[in-house]
């Protein structure tokens, strides 16, 4: 079985995000990036499938800041092949990214394509669904469970309230992964360094085929925080006493 995992980097949301002077983009100068956490789950699920069923896992990403390191990290986690798609430009829209990836993936042996269900910056839609439609294959998103038998994947799609629907999908198919069956594995830096020496990244030229998001960003702004929280100050014990007071005020008998 050939599994392709599409991953990308997103701004680390733990850091403060600054809006550039143009008001239409993030100030990327000091931005710290990390792998989209859902893509990390997609990779983990692919590696689990490889361990249980046997598979070749190919990790594909568009060229971008620090992407080699992210790809080598995947190799350190036992991904078999690394592909970097070049020539797409910086910060492509989801449509452009999906179209370029579809062009490259359509020339690769592939049974299953896994990617994160969403990313923090996909203004024009989720990559997995777009990719599936450009490839003309079925897809299911918000997936929390995958098993494969023969030419069919059985997948669990999550709705609100913890309700899950089970689907059978003929392969090849794209799945937007919400959560892998286990916590994404961690690899120590030494193993990543090792992978940097041992693994190779195949570079393939990508083409967005003239697609675009179809809309333009007119403005970026921080959401108004409404009334906002009344902030409690002081030493931990003082803050704790205030919180206990608030809880009691609400009629909780403690």
């Amino acid at each position: 079985m050939n599994i392709i995992v599409s991953i990308k980097q997103v701004p680390d949301l733990v850091e403060e995000l600054e809006i550039a002077a143009s008001g239409k983009e993030l100030n990327r100068e000091w931005l710290k990036y990390k792998i989209n956490e859902f893509d990390d789950h997609a990779l983990e699920e692919a590696l689990c499938l490889k361990e249980t069923l046997g598979a070749t896992v190919t990790v594909i990403a568009l060229d971008g800041e620090d992407i080699d390191k992210v790809l080598f990290t995947a190799a350190a986690k036992e991904a078999d092949k690394l592909v970097k798609v070049t020539g797409v430009g910086d910060n492509p829209s989801s449509h452009e990214a999906a179209k370029a990836l579809a062009g490259v993936i359509s020339g690769m042996p592939c049974d299953l394509i896994l990617t994160g269900v969403q990313a923090a910056d996909d203004r024009d839609g989720q990559l997995g669904v777009l990719l599936a439609h450009y490839l003309g294959v079925p897809h299911v998103s918000v997936v929390t469970g995958v098993s494969v038998a023969g030419n069919t994947a059985t997948v669990h799609k999550e709705y609100g309230g913890g309700v899950i629907a089970e689907f059978e999908v003929s392969l090849p198919a794209v799945l937007g992964i919400q959560a892998a069956r286990q916590t994404p594995r961690y690899v120590p830096v030494a193993r990543v360094r090792q992978a940097m020496r041992a693994a190779t990244i195949d570079e393939v030229g990508g083409n967005t085929g003239g697609v675009s998001a179809g809309t333009s960003i007119s403005r970026m702004f921080k959401p108004e925080s409404g009334a906002g929280a009344q902030m409690l100050e002081g030493a931990p014990a003082d803050i704790a006493a205030k919180i206990v007071g608030i809880i009691r005020e609400k009629g909780i008998k403690v």
């Binding site: 701004p11 949301l13 995000l17 809006i19 993030l26 449509h95 923090a120 910056d121 996909d122 203004r123 024009d124 839609g125 989720q126 998001a213 179809g214 809309t215 333009s216 960003i217 007119s218 403005r219 970026m220 702004f221 921080k222 959401p223």
Partner: peptide, 28 residues
């Protein structure tokens, strides 16, 4: 075209709540 994660819409614009709710992005 698609504008996702919208929390405000006018006839000529849609605003997406992105980056974990930290930034709103208005599309024309």
């Amino acid at each position: 075209p698609l504008v996702a994660y919208a929390n405000a819409i006018t006839a000529g614009s849609a605003t997406s709540q992105l980056y974990g709710g930290k930034v709103n992005v208005e599309s024309a």
